[in-house]
Design a protein around this nucleic acid. Sequence first.
DNA 1: ACCCTTTTGACACGCAATGCCATTTGTCGT
DNA 2: ACGACAAATGGCATTGCGTGTCAAAAGGGT
Lengths: 196, 196
Amino acid sequence: MGLREDKKDRTRTQLLEAGLDLIHKRGFEATTVADIAAAVSVSPRTLLRYFPTKEDVIVSWVQDGMTIIREELEERLKSEPPVVALLASARAMLAVFDEKSRFFLTIETAIRSNRSISARKEQMIAELTDEVARILASPDRPSPLPWVVAYTVSGTVFALVRATISSWVEGRARTSLPDIFDTAASIVHFEENVTN
Amino acid sequence: MGLREDKKDRTRTQLLEAGLDLIHKRGFEATTVADIAAAVSVSPRTLLRYFPTKEDVIVSWVQDGMTIIREELEERLKSEPPVVALLASARAMLAVFDEKSRFFLTIETAIRSNRSISARKEQMIAELTDEVARILASPDRPSPLPWVVAYTVSGTVFALVRATISSWVEGRARTSLPDIFDTAASIVHFEENVTN
DNA sequence: ACCCTTTTGACACGCAATGCCATTTGTCGT
DNA sequence: ACGACAAATGGCATTGCGTGTCAAAAGGGT
């Protein structure tokens, strides 16, 4: 498949960029779906076929970060113990975003500007937490963790990520994202038998 | 103020209960604002004056839990070190919900049945995380924590709460909520100098 | 050039949420 | 007990998101 997929990718990217741009300038509720669609010369109906809700136009950027963690984790779990692998994956994601820090800040600002966007973001993180816990607890793994343990580990690591991003955005810490993450991670420790 | 406030409280409670009931039976999107309002013989307009959004009819129940944590924390912080106080507050909230476990399960099920409700819930937890972090980092406190540390502690504790509720709802653990919480809490440890 | 599949646009619709104003319902002073 | 005042409610109109449906357009394979 060539031209068709290409066009779809292009439209999607255009919508994503136009959406971020408009929402960043005018604000979230001041920007209608019709506005974003018009900016890309596409019908509103089409936009909602690419993105289930208006929030997703912004929040899709978060998906990228999640993809990094997912892939990184899958790879690392082959050789590293779960906790180490997860921490490293989260750190890797933050390293990527640190490089496009200016861009990342724009997105985070847009997200924080509106309740329904941040709600959606939080919900996605919750889903990812669940997903990662399921992986760590999977019976297919060499030593599957009990559900409570798996969820605790997963949830805690994402708490570290939140803490990192929050500190970074609030500007109370002026170092790099991975550095802040290391600081946060140095505060909490897992039971040794979890780090099998 | 007597009769007026009373009536308001009653209407609010009625809406809350009718809402939970209908949504539990028919599902979230199958239940309209008009339905819930009609069940209490009130105009839809009025319902939306009591609750900003339809989600809030369900999610208000979560507020109660948050109130417990808030109050408990404020009290305990007077005498206990921050981490200990926060952990105890979270545990206290879970103990309360454990007593109305049947009811609590209904609510959690309703929340999990729909994306926009769980999104709203997650966002509220995120806000509470932020709020608690602000308290722990407040310059008014005897030994205020740095922002990263405060946020990490706060976020981690709520991760434990999530893990507890998740394990409990998924039925993989058949003990009480506080017991599960203890298990989760026993897995993570904070740096000693944080537990000042 | 042809047919077949996918994508898009246009229209209609339901419902949540908000603003506005008239009406009702408590509250308080006299 | 009555009337003035404030608060709560209902009804109405409006906007905007999201969905279903179908016809038109664009892409791909022969």
